[in-house]
Computed example of a mutant assay.
Amino acid sequence: MYEPKSFDDLKAGDRVALSKTITEADGALYIAATGDFGPVHVDEAYAGATRFGRRLAPGIMVAGLCTSILTSELVGTIGVSIEDRFWFTGPVFYNDTITFEVWIAEQYDETRTIVWEASARNEDGLEVLKARATLKFPRKKVAA
């Protein structure tokens, strides 16, 4: 089981990479949980008539995988997200295998924040997502 790191255990440059195949089940669960029934995600005929030619996996679901990897594999769940920015640079289709690379780009001791970035690429090497976000960690407890 992953042990969360404290702010002091982290450093700029720490990184992790992980791959995941985006399945129909992933999309169905996300769509059911969020109510995001956009036709490009659920209607094959509609999606087939778009420039993509087939259904897309929900982009924000894919973005959420970056934060999941950050907390489960790199920093733990102690920090709180205070800003998230995502750029959807390419389509993600069901059954695509996406490789996520997540890293700590900056670390600020005075505010106990880190800025993390991510890049995601499909199995053909096409970048499909970029991210940059800020995570704030609690202050150290002062001994009484």
Rank of each mutant, 00 (worst) to 15 (best):
M1E: 13
M1L: 11
P4W: 00
S6T: 07
S6G: 05
F7D: 02
F7T: 00
L10C: 08
K11G: 09
A12E: 09
A12L: 12
A12Y: 11
G13T: 04
G13P: 08
V16K: 10
A17V: 08
S19G: 06
S19C: 05
T23K: 03
E24Q: 14
A25K: 06
D26L: 03
L29N: 10
Y30T: 00
Y30A: 02
Y30C: 03
Y30L: 02
Y30S: 02
A32P: 00
A33L: 13
A33T: 11
G35C: 06
G35M: 05
D36A: 10
F37W: 10
G38R: 11
P39Y: 03
D43A: 06
E44Y: 04
E44D: 13
A45P: 03
Y46H: 12
Y46D: 08
G48S: 08
G48P: 06
A49W: 02
F52Y: 10
F52L: 08
G53I: 08
R54P: 12
R55D: 14
P58S: 08
P58E: 05
I60L: 14
I60Y: 14
A63D: 09
G64R: 05
L65K: 08
C66G: 08
T67Q: 13
S68K: 11
L70P: 09
L70T: 07
T71P: 00
E73A: 11
L74P: 01
L74G: 06
G76P: 06
T77N: 11
I78R: 04
I78G: 09
G79R: 00
G79M: 00
S81N: 14
S81A: 14
I82Y: 10
I82W: 04
E83A: 13
D84S: 14
D84Y: 12
D84E: 15
D84N: 15
R85L: 10
R85W: 10
R85Q: 14
F86A: 11
W87E: 12
W87K: 11
W87H: 11
T89L: 04
P91T: 00
P91K: 00
V92P: 05
Y94G: 06
Y94W: 08
Y94F: 15
N95F: 06
N95M: 09
N95P: 00
T97N: 03
T97I: 04
T97K: 01
I98P: 02
F100V: 01
E101S: 09
I104K: 02
I104W: 02
A105G: 15
Y108E: 14
Y108H: 15
D109S: 13
D109R: 10
D109A: 15
T111P: 04
T111F: 09
T113E: 15
T113S: 13
V115D: 12
W116N: 08
W116D: 03
E117T: 12
E117N: 13
S119N: 09
A120Q: 04
R121Y: 03
R121C: 10
R121T: 12
R121V: 12
N122I: 00
G125F: 01
G125Y: 02
G125A: 05
L126R: 13
L126D: 11
E127H: 01
E127C: 08
E127G: 02
L129A: 04
A131L: 06
R132Q: 11
R132H: 03
A133Y: 03
A133E: 09
A133F: 05
K136F: 09
F137V: 03
F137R: 01
P138K: 01
K140P: 06
K140L: 10
K140Q: 12
A144Q: 09
